[in-house]
């Protein structure tokens, strides 16, 4: 029996739901990071001179020393493939028609998780990956303004 089948011996149950809708603010750092992504097509990082760390996506503070980060840097659109996976089923457990690739692309001391467009056989950890952005007029200040990352040849 799978989890989705009804157990005829199960006790009487009461259905309820937990309503939860949220409206999140971008925050101090998010306002600046996503505005740069939307308006300028840039991925920004923030650098802590005390701890010598570069946070990507940029943060307002260094988590190590709690110092304020004012040195913001354009990280470019090319990062390094840190790891990836190939998805064959969706969250409901149904097979995907086309397997989907998700990867972690490193920038500075952080990175961005996103979809990858590539032949999985061609992916090698450590290879350069480039962000492909939506056209400027379609960007909304969202992580989905990056459509995907693809292998990059300089």
């Amino acid at each position: 029996m799978t989890f989705l089948e009804r157990d005829p011996l199960a006790p009487q149950a009461w259905f309820g739901n937990l309503p939860a809708a949220h409206r999140y603010t971008y925050g101090l750092a998010g306002e600046r990071f996503f505005r740069a992504l939307k308006d300028e097509g840039k991925i920004l990082g923030s650098y802590c001179p005390k701890c010598d760390r570069t946070y990507v996506p940029a943060t307002a503070f260094c988590e190590r020393c709690l110092g304020e980060l004012t040195d913001w840097r354009d990280m470019g659109l090319v990062g390094e493939l840190h790891t990836f996976t190939v998805l064959y089923v969706d969250v409901e457990g149904r097979p995907l028609e086309t397997p989907q690739i998700v990867g972690l692309v490193s920038f500075g001391d952080g990175g961005i998780v996103h979809f990858l467009h590539a032949d999985p056989e061609s992916l090698v950890i450590g290879m350069p990956m480039r962000a492909v952005l939506k056209p400027p007029h379609e960007r909304q200040g969202s992580i989905l303004d990056i459509q995907y990352f693809e292998p990059f040849q300089a």
Binding site: T25, G27, E31, R64
Partner: peptide, 27 residues
Amino acid sequence: RRALETPKELSWEAARMALESCELTMD
């Protein structure tokens, strides 16, 4: 009523002020 800061950033602002008030660092 509605802060721009994220929960992380609100926490950071308060934590930093508390540390500065007694001249300590995270170390």
